[in-house]
Design a protein around this nucleic acid. Structure first.
Lengths: 120, 120
DNA sequence: TTCTCATATGAGCATCTGCTCATATATTAT
DNA sequence: ATAATATATGAGCAGATGCTCATATGAGAA
């Protein structure tokens, strides 16, 4: 057996060198990995999940959401800014109020898929 | 107009009281919200994303993954423990090695949906 | 048994995240 | 113009997260 140094024991004793090499090429590139992680992190918080579920039902302004979820205007606004940056929601100004709605259907699909897994 | 106190200005000046009330009933219950957030948080990290993409291609052991991703065995093992806890992957012992594979198809579907959104 | 290898896991630490609080901006009304 | 209202945003802080390092566990070999 070839000696590959003290830190490379198990990595090369297995038969899977070819499998590993095959997989290496099929990974999404670094930027896509980062964008994916960032997208999913939007769904990784209960406040944002509740905001999105609320927007499934109706377009709502910041204070409506704050009232609905029992949170401060500031907390909601910060989260809306994140969701907007991730292009999951879209603002519409009407006088002083800003109404938010879902940007596209993927949001719904993704949450549905997640809910399906959670419900087994 | 009814005076509702200093902190409840905007919440009740809008026409959306009914919309808000309708939505209140349609939110998933607290436990589901939490489970959903926990599930999505599994996809909210590039290391775990790369592990899952790797397992799309082939069942792999811890050290194979560590080698593939250029990370320590410990770091990978910690992440695998999280993915296992979330029931996204499944271990299979074979001698000293433990091989991991995807637990079910939802994982693939969810990542695909995310990738679709990222790719616009 | 003892030794080695593969994996798992607890502690510690630096970074990230989600809130609060204060304040800034934008729009309308007077 | 000034005042009031709705939203946005920066700073600060407590808790969560992902790594490293050391060590524990589990399984096969001698």
């Amino acid at each position: 057996m070839i000696d590959l140094g003290k830190d490379e024991k198990c990595e090369f004793m297995h038969l899977h060198v070819d499998a590993v090499e095959k997989v290496r090429g099929s990974l999404p590139d670094e930027e896509k990995q980062y964008e994916l992680a960032e997208l999913f992190s939007m769904f990784a918080d209960t406040t944002r999940i509740r905001i999105l579920y609320a927007l499934f039902e109706a377009e709502m302004c910041v204070c409506d959401l704050a009232n609905l979820l029992g949170m401060t205007q500031s907390a909601i606004s910060h989260q809306l800014a994140l969701l907007k940056r991730a292009k999951l929601i879209r603002p519409r100004r009407e006088g002083r109020a800003v109404f938010y709605s879902l940007a596209d259907g993927h949001v719904r699909t993704m949450l549905d898929q997640g809910m399906e897994h959670v419900n087994e």
